[in-house]
Design a protein around this nucleic acid. Sequence first.
RNA 1: GGCCCCAUCGUCUAGCUCGGUUUAGGACGUUGCCCUCUCAAGGCAAAAACACGGGUUCAAAUCCCGUUGGGGCUACCA
Length: 464
Amino acid sequence: MKIVTRFAPSPTGVLHIGGARTAIFNWLFARNNGGNFILRIEDTDQARSTKESEKEILESMKWLGLDWDSEPIRQSERTEIYKEYANKLLSEGKAYKCYVTPEQLQEKRKEAQEKGEYFKYKREWAEIGAAPDKPFAIRLATEDAGKVLVQDLIRGNIEFDLKEIDDFVILRADGFPTYNFAVAIDDFDMGISHVIRGDDHLTNTSKQILIYDALDLGKPKFAHVSMILGEDKAKLSKRHGATSVIEYKNDGYLPEAVLNYLVRLGWSFGDQEIFTKDELIEKFNLESIGKSPSIFNPEKFLWVNSWYIKNRPTEEIAEKIMPLLKERGYKTEPDITLLKVIKELRERSETLNEMVEKSSYFFTNDFEYDENAKNKFLTEDMIPIFQKVIEKLTNLENFTHDPIHNAFGKVMDETELKLGKIAQPVRVALTGGTKSPGIFEVIEILGKEKTIERLNKATRLCSR
RNA sequence: GGCCCCAUCGUCUAGCUCGGUUUAGGACGUUGCCCUCUCAAGGCAAAAACACGGGUUCAAAUCCCGUUGGGGCUACCA
């Protein structure tokens, strides 16, 4: 059997963390089995669906490296297909027209709730307000007793009692299918072999099975994954901070890190934490997906990202960081200097954005001096020492790490000061603060001209 | 409320399918130490969990039942 999976977002917002993980699981399962991965846009809710949102979801998918086979399919363009199936059910008496308006139903529902009663749609209401020209919805005629069995690859067999299930609407008065109907039809029509989705759809699955049985269609296999929760164990939402893929992209996360972190939320492979994309494709399986919900942990996510910041090729980091540098007005090219800056800063940054923030003094002379650092380290007694450093560095022909180190050694000998006593003030002079890569590395990257210039400026700041 | 799902360190998880090999392993975070020109990175170490109660069994984190807790669904939304 050909493995075909799908990701079916509704274009009513951004691609969020939970949706992204569902997409990743489906994509991985398809790729692992040499199958197809299909993207289906569930835009049957005309009021809430937007093109912009669809575009953004597609962009997020591309950014994550989740490629799909064949063109994305939009449910809004398939209404005729749904109608056909609905009519088939109608003609077979497995579905019927219902003229009760949503408003009338809302009222009945409210009444029942006020009496503390369980609300269930009753078939005899269907004809209320019936007239030849009145709009109607189509409902599936379901049995009153019996069970529906959901066979889940992750959770095993789950039974739902039919007395809990309404004659639910499959085709709305506006001619659009409801979610459950469109999904069932599409999954069949598109030859989906495995439906991997959040367990918030478990009850929907029972309804979809009812549709398949009424139509006598073959069913896909189902795998319901537990949801991703926020730190307070509530469903992940905006108030838990960033929840969309795009936000993480904008915050300086790498797509590999997002992929890696999310796939490990609910799935594992022994003790392994870091996976390349190829490894994931090779190792991913449904059996190792856990049943319990997982809590989204920003700290671990940050750690995964910092791992990729440290380990991705320098050229790749350079390419990604250049637009960010440009935004700040730092003219830069992918030259040796940028590569050196990245080499030093990647050990100290958890995100690309942080790396940019920490790199300003490499690209501009116009950086701020930290007030405390200035007061503590740029003091009058430093003037002769800075002069010695300037003197030794000026004489250097080969302005690289080791000669610079030697130059400092000479200053240490002559002043009888320890390196720390010299390096820290120099650091403040060159970077404006007390935290930076190793001082010899900083000096090498800055080059002779800028280093001397800044030491001179610092000397002036010392004499106040 | 009803129905459904879930339950190992604070968090992600290994182990559970096929009960003994477990003083329950790894990772993030936390704390301490080492390294050290600062900050990091790195190394080493520590604290930290089988929700509870019953069974079954010679033996249970592993199997069964219940309780509790958490989550989801309960629309002519998806």
